[in-house]
Design a protein around this nucleic acid. Structure first.
Lengths: 210, 210
DNA sequence: GTATACTTGTGAAATAATTAACAATCTATA
DNA sequence: TATAGATTGTTAATTATTTCACAAGTATAC
């Protein structure tokens, strides 16, 4: 079936949610799940779930539901996380090292396989099983290993500069933890993990409610 | 002027961006800024910026631009971050302690003023200037200090249960770092800071581009 | 085999959000 | 004081996303 329609931005994020849910169900030996059951666990309507899937194909069986195992694999294929993705982390501060040591990424077929910092006392140390390299080696390592995705957790004042460097070496997607809007080439994807901003939004919503 | 129109969800998040930019400009002694200058720094069109502000009032001067100092204060008022907000953190693991030690929140008038954990070896320790309390004291402290906002950084398997507890003690907004969709009363705001999901979305976008 | 109860998939309708277009206003300057 | 160049604020048009409504397919009970 042809799938040429425009796909909403948010669909990708929701697919990621679905996938997580499905993996949990699979672990619990659930074989079949309906869109209405999904609705109960996630804050997404059953139609939204079906519509999101419909952009990519037909994966369910009418009158029955979805095969958990099958749908899991299909969504992994759609997202591209059916194969392992190697990620580089730049900036091994408090947050950076917490991320390095977080064992949960592998479950998503994501692996931080390189880590860089500029501080002498950090370079050479091992953190989360990774030996930290000096940022001077960024170019060489990114090119050699053909890395495409980076986590940026450097201090805010260096973020823009380091991001540009990363992009010049071939990085195409950045998860940015620095509280600053990175200005980069249009073909580079930036996702901002900005905790202060999230908290500010929550403060605002609380205020609106009253 | 009456402002009764529905305000888009994303506007709050963008206001937070604007505020950050404005503060930076203020630091740099810039007095006046135009919506077009904002566009150059943030990935937001000048119309979007003006439209977002228009939901709350008229803050600029036609033919001139916006007074940086004034607009900063106005947006702080809109967001509610013109006064300090105290936040409680639950779960002082690697990520939790990184957040506790992060000095940047104060700049946003946000302060983590309480931290809780269930591990004996953590309780009583001081981290980021805060003495960690046992989660048994959650009820008492939240009620006594009338806390409304919580950061949840406990292991995923406890997240739902702890979140419910928090809500039952009066918490109304949660920044959730656990990779799970929390099912809570409809009047509780949940913001998910889900790094694996962000990375998955990036992987998907990279895949689409090809 | 037929009726019944489910559940998916999807065009059409409704809603939400962004962008275009432009009137209104300001400053500077001749 | 008139004019030119800038910039805001806002209605209308457009685009994007979600939801509705329902046809089509499946399983089960009798």
């Amino acid at each position: 079936m042809e799938r040429t329609t425009y796909i909403p931005q948010e669909t990708a994020r929701r697919l990621s949610l679905y996938l997580r849910m499905l993996r949990r169900l699979r672990q619990e030996k659930v074989r079949i799940v309906s869109s209405d059951q999904i609705r109960r666990f996630l804050s997404v309507s059953s139609v939204q779930f079906r519509k999101d899937l419909s952009y990519f194909g037909e994966f369910g069986k009418r009158g029955v539901g979805y095969d958990v195992e099958l749908l899991t694999k299909e969504i992994e294929k759609i997202l591209g996380t059916d194969v392992l993705h190697e990620i580089t982390l730049v900036g091994v501060g408090r947050l950076g090292s917490a991320l390095l040591e977080y064992p949960g990424f592998l479950e998503f077929n994501l692996k931080i396989s390189e880590a860089f910092d500029s501080h002498k006392d950090k370079v050479g140390k091992i953190c989360g099983g990774i030996r930290i390299k000096h940022i001077r080696q960024l170019r060489w390592v990114i090119k050699k290993r053909n890395l495409r995705i980076a986590i940026l957790s450097v201090p805010v004042e260096f973020a823009q500069e380091v991001a540009q460097e990363l992009v010049s070496y071939g990085i195409k997607a950045i998860l940015n933890f620095a509280p600053v809007n990175l200005v980069l080439a249009a073909d580079v994807f930036v996702s901002n993990a900005d905790m202060a901003s999230e908290l500010e939004s929550l403060v605002y919503k609380l205020k609106q409610k009253k």
